Every structure is written in structure tokens, then in C-alpha cells.
Amino acid sequence: MKNVIVSWSGGKDSAFVLFKLMRNGEYIIKGLLSTTSEETKRLPIHEVSTSLIQEQATSIGLPLFEVSLPSNANNDLYKKTLKKQFDQFKNNDVYTIIYADLFLEDIKVFRDQLLSEVGMIGEYPLWGRNTSALAEDFISKGFEAIVTTIDAEKLPSEMVGKLYNKSFLENLPEGVDPCGENGEFHTFVFNGPLFQYSIPFSVGETFETVSGRFLHVEIHSS
């Protein structure tokens, strides 16, 4: 059996890949890894608070390893900080990071190069999956998620804050990936077969980042 850490965004793809691993007897899951902002205490782009990410980890029953970076961190600082965390994983006999990437080759190349520099590897159990089938599979397994972020250039504003369900998929504009793999939207999973209990939250106001390019909905622990 192989010790692994799962890269964790709190969204549907990372939740689904973790679900798959937990049903596979070949892996010992040692924890979840999230990258957060020092200033906002949120996951960048997703803009979900770290307290909610921690609540997910608690409900799942796994430790959360948080790598915190300043918002103006350059690529060198990003890599240096992650490598430091990777070295700690290796000290605990973990040499593999699991990612939920589906088909963006440049991201995969970046991850694999960074891991190779510290003697580790990445695995991508969902790589190449048909995203329409994957979205339907996620929903059919009983997962529940809310859309926390949309790219306002690709989706109408009223779609932020919606539940990620069949109705949401049916109303996606033409050309938008059903898993949002091109960054069209991001989600927060609050219930499903991974969780010992549903994550309690309330929905607040919407807000913008990147000069209005991304629209987010505030979700609060409750």
C-alpha cells in the first residue's frame, strides 16, 4: 500500500478523487493539502475561507496541511514554500501527491516538474475522464456542492451561489466545461459519502475579484 497526500481545493473534483481513493485498497491517505492566502485566510480563486476547508477535513476525518502564501508571492516563493512542505511529507514516508486535474497539460507538467525536484511524484486518477460523465457521476453518488465562484466573462452572474446539480449543468452556456476545468466556475462540497456530517454554512453577499473578472458568493460557517 502507498502513502499519499491529496491536493484539496474543497471543490467537487478533489472530493471525487478522494472518494475514489478511499474505495481503493492500494492507498493510505495521510491527509489533505491546501494552499491559502495569508492576507484573506481563503483559498485563492475559490475564495472559500480556511475555516470551512478545515471543517471539511474534520468531517472527512483527515488532517489538513495548509500552505499559506502572501497574495503577491512570485513563482519562486510558491515553489520554495511547497517544496518545504513536500520535504516534511517525505520525512513521514509520503512520496506521492494525488491531484484531481482532468486535462490541462501545462498544469500537470508544472506539478510533475516541481515534485521531481524533491524526489516525489504526482498521480492523476481522473486524468482524461469525460467531464460530462464525471459531473453526472459526482451528482449521482450523492455529493452536494455550491458554486462559489464564476468567471463572469463565461457565465451569467445569477449562476454564482447555485447548487451544482443537474439543473445547473443543463443551464450552462454553450462551450462551458461541465466540470469547469477551464476555470469557468469553482465549487464547495458540503455533503456526500465522504463526510461524517454535512458542513453547516450560510450564504452571504456576492463580491468580485480581479477587477470584476471573477464573481464569488460569501459562504459563512454556521
Rank of each mutant, 00 (worst) to 15 (best):
V189Q: 02
S116M: 03
S222Y: 03
E174F: 10
E218N: 08
K108Q: 07
S68L: 01
K108C: 00
S34I: 10
E55S: 14
T40Y: 14
F103V: 13
P173M: 04
I219G: 02
D13R: 09
S49W: 05
K84D: 11
G142T: 12
E184C: 08
E117L: 04
L82C: 10
L134A: 06
A15Q: 06
N182D: 06
Q54H: 10
V67K: 04
S9G: 11
I219S: 04
V67N: 05
L155S: 09
K108H: 02
E39A: 05
S7V: 11
S14G: 06
F16S: 05
D13P: 14
V48R: 00
Q113H: 02
Y197S: 15
Y78K: 07
V210S: 06
F195I: 02
S167M: 06
P200E: 05
V67Q: 03
A152T: 13
D106G: 00
Y164S: 11
M22V: 10
L126I: 13
A73R: 02
D112E: 14
E136R: 15
K41W: 12
H216D: 00
M159E: 07
A133H: 07
F214N: 15
Q88R: 14
V67C: 05
E170I: 00
D93C: 12
F201M: 14
F65A: 09
S59Q: 01
N191D: 15
I45M: 13
V176D: 06
F86M: 07
T50A: 03
T58N: 13
S167H: 06
K154V: 09
N191H: 07
I28L: 00
G180V: 13
T209R: 03
K12F: 04
